[in-house]
Amino acid sequence: MVRIVLTFLAMAWLALMVLAPVAIVLVEALGAGLGAWWAAVSDEETRTSVALSLQIAALVVPLNAIFGVAAAWALARFRFPGRALLLALLDLPLSVSPVVAGLVFVLLFGAQGWFGVWLQEHDVQIIFAVPGIVLATAFVTLPMVARELLPLLESQGDDAELAALTLGASGWQVFWRVSFPRMRGALAYGVLLCLARALGEFGAVSVVSGHIRGQTDTLPLHVEILHNEYHFQAAFAAASLLLLVGVATLLLRRLHTPETGD
């Protein structure tokens, strides 16, 4: 009896608090028919915002992936002074408010920022332009690959790498032939998480973007613009694309069996 009541309560909470928001996105996006959904999704401005989001992710994700591999290698394979501090700092970008993440770049590169005057003299625009969005996105997704790799590398230990070294392999050979193949799965999953977050980031990007239509509105910002202009069906159609990315990430996670067994 207790079992049934508890199960019912848990399911009810999940249904009302989590499932209902997903359902309403789909209902609002597709309620007027597939034709209306397609019309909203293929709208010129929506397409531009999708392209911009993809471009930004294409820049940010590889950089953060390289960073992630390097950070995981250094932190999992070596003990050095300041390692604990570095581990803590690595988490900072994920715990800082996205608004603060955007703000710091405005303070550096905005019109009244430290480099504002210099940038203006040289006619370089970072805030209210694409470079600012790239920086803010890089900030909020910074440790995502590293966090996937770190527990894996730590649980694997360095026996295999040391064995390869004693057998005469060079450093890069060890990395490419021994370490890399064993981290490929976790790396791919970290890249996927990083990609999903880069495409969906709202707060940080909203602060630096300036919301210039057709120029600096990424897909999530475009959802906001449409919503604020009472184009609800179009807003939910655009949102359904982001929902699709999110759900795909979750389903791929199911397929990706974590090697650490977490």
């Binding site: 996105v25 495409l199 999530p220 929902l243 759900v247």
Partner: peptide
Amino acid sequence: VDLPFALPTAVAGIA
């Protein structure tokens, strides 16, 4: 359970 992690905040907001 994981959905709130994966759903961009703007989508969660309008939903």
